[in-house]
């Protein structure tokens, strides 16, 4: 039971208190670019979640079993980029052949997130945390939570932006400026979650 509780804590923390977009400011590009409509935001987040989990599933063992024993952990970044890029390509090929419906629904987002910093960030921060308490399972749960957190942030922000559409915004801050202001407010609101998970389950 304790195991499950810890996993839930890791999962919730990744969504709320350590949200990759709103607290760590990773993956801002899709956050601002693809959040105009709820539908596209959902598609993008689904693809990101998917890639985050499989990327962590592959990079974690590579780091632990190959890079760390040979003392090459300083090559982490370049190896991870290489692996993630190759992996996404492979997944795309497989999906195209065997699950074309999923391939079509993920569409352009799958290749787009190959170089997404949120994906790289998750895989690297998971490694960083492995010195504390993170095993393989925790790492996977954390990256899944990070993806869901990305989804929550995207969908919430898409909602905010749809409201902005019908607002009378002063001309000087129309477009990107007001989007950034709105993003910072959403991010501030997520600060309210700090300490929540520790106190709830800790």
């Amino acid at each position: 039971m304790i195991e499950v509780k810890a996993l839930v804590a890791v999962f919730l923390a990744a969504i709320l208190t350590e949200n990759y977009v709103l607290n760590k400011f990773l993956g801002i590009c899709p956050f601002l670019g693809v959040s105009k409509k709820v539908n596209t935001a959902l598609g993008m987040s689904a693809a990101v979640t998917f890639v985050m989990v499989i990327a962590t599933a592959v990079t974690y063992p590579i780091y632990m079993n190959l890079l760390l024993p040979t003392g090459l952990d300083y090559l982490q970044t370049i190896v991870f980029i290489l692996v993630i890029a190759g992996l996404v390509q492979l997944v795309e090929t497989i999906l195209k052949k065997y699950i074309p419906s999923l391939y079509n629904s993920l569409g352009i987002y799958l290749p787009l997130i190959t170089t997404n910093c949120a994906v790289l960030g998750v895989t690297m921060l998971v490694i960083e945390k492995s010195s504390e308490s993170f095993g393989y399972v925790e790492a996977l749960v954390n990256s899944f939570g990070a993806g869901i957190g990305f989804l929550v942030a995207m969908v919430m922000f898409a909602g905010v932006r749809q409201r902005l559409e019908s607002c009378d915004i002063p001309k000087s801050i129309q477009g990107l400026p007001i989007t950034l202001v709105a993003a910072s407010l959403v991010s501030l609101s997520f600060l309210g979650f700090s300490g929540l998970v520790e106190n709830m389950l800790g």
């Binding site: 590579i62 190959l66 890079l67 040979t70 090459l72 090559l75 370049i78 190896v79 290489l82 692996v83 190759g86 992996l87 390509q89 492979l90 090929t93």
Partner: peptide, 17 residues
């Protein structure tokens, strides 16, 4: 070893792809 390992990973991924 660094060069070998990184290029080895690259080669494997390339082959698989």
């Amino acid at each position: 070893p660094a060069v070998l390992i990184v290029s080895g990973i690259g080669l494997i991924i390339g082959l698989v792809l």
